[in-house]
Amino acid sequence: MKWYVTLGIAIAAEIFGSSMLKFSDGFTYILPSIGFVIGFGISFYALSVTLKSIPLSMAYAIWSGAGTALTALIGVLIWGEAFNLSSLLGIVLIIGGVVLLNLSESQGKAREDKEVATSSSG
Rank of each mutant, 00 (worst) to 15 (best):
M1R: 13
M1W: 12
M1N: 13
K2P: 15
Y4C: 05
Y4A: 06
V5N: 09
V5F: 12
V5C: 02
T6W: 15
L7R: 11
G8L: 08
I9Y: 03
I9R: 05
A10K: 11
A10P: 07
A10W: 08
A12Q: 06
A13T: 09
E14H: 11
E14W: 00
I15C: 01
S18R: 02
S18C: 07
S19L: 06
S19N: 10
M20E: 05
L21Q: 03
K22F: 00
K22Y: 02
F23P: 00
F23T: 00
S24D: 11
D25T: 02
D25G: 01
G26Q: 09
G26R: 08
I30V: 15
L31D: 05
P32Y: 03
P32E: 09
P32D: 10
S33V: 00
I34K: 04
I34L: 12
F36Q: 13
V37Y: 04
V37S: 10
I38Q: 09
G39V: 03
G39S: 06
G41T: 07
I42G: 02
I42V: 14
F44E: 08
Y45K: 07
Y45W: 14
A46P: 05
L47P: 05
L47Q: 10
S48W: 10
V49L: 13
V49T: 13
V49H: 11
V49D: 13
T50N: 12
T50A: 09
L51A: 10
P55D: 15
L56M: 15
L56F: 14
S57R: 09
A59C: 09
A59L: 08
Y60M: 04
A61C: 06
I62R: 12
W63N: 05
S64E: 10
A66L: 14
G67N: 05
T68N: 04
A69N: 04
T71N: 09
A72T: 14
L73T: 07
L73V: 12
I74S: 04
G75S: 03
V76Y: 15
V76T: 10
L77E: 11
I78K: 11
I78Q: 11
W79Y: 15
W79I: 00
W79V: 00
W79G: 01
E81A: 03
A82L: 12
F83M: 11
F83N: 03
N84R: 07
N84T: 03
L85C: 02
L85V: 12
L85K: 12
L85I: 12
L85D: 11
S86D: 12
L88G: 14
L88I: 13
L89Y: 13
L89T: 15
G90Q: 10
I91R: 08
I91F: 04
V92A: 15
V92D: 11
L93P: 01
L93Y: 06
L93H: 05
L93M: 13
I94N: 05
I94S: 03
I94K: 04
I95K: 00
G96N: 06
G96V: 02
G96I: 02
G97Y: 06
V98N: 09
V98R: 08
L100K: 06
L100F: 10
L101A: 01
N102F: 02
N102S: 13
L103W: 12
S106E: 15
Q107C: 03
G108I: 01
A110T: 07
E112I: 11
D113R: 15
D113P: 00
D113K: 15
K114N: 09
K114R: 13
E115T: 06
E115P: 00
V116F: 11
S120E: 15
S120F: 12
G122C: 08
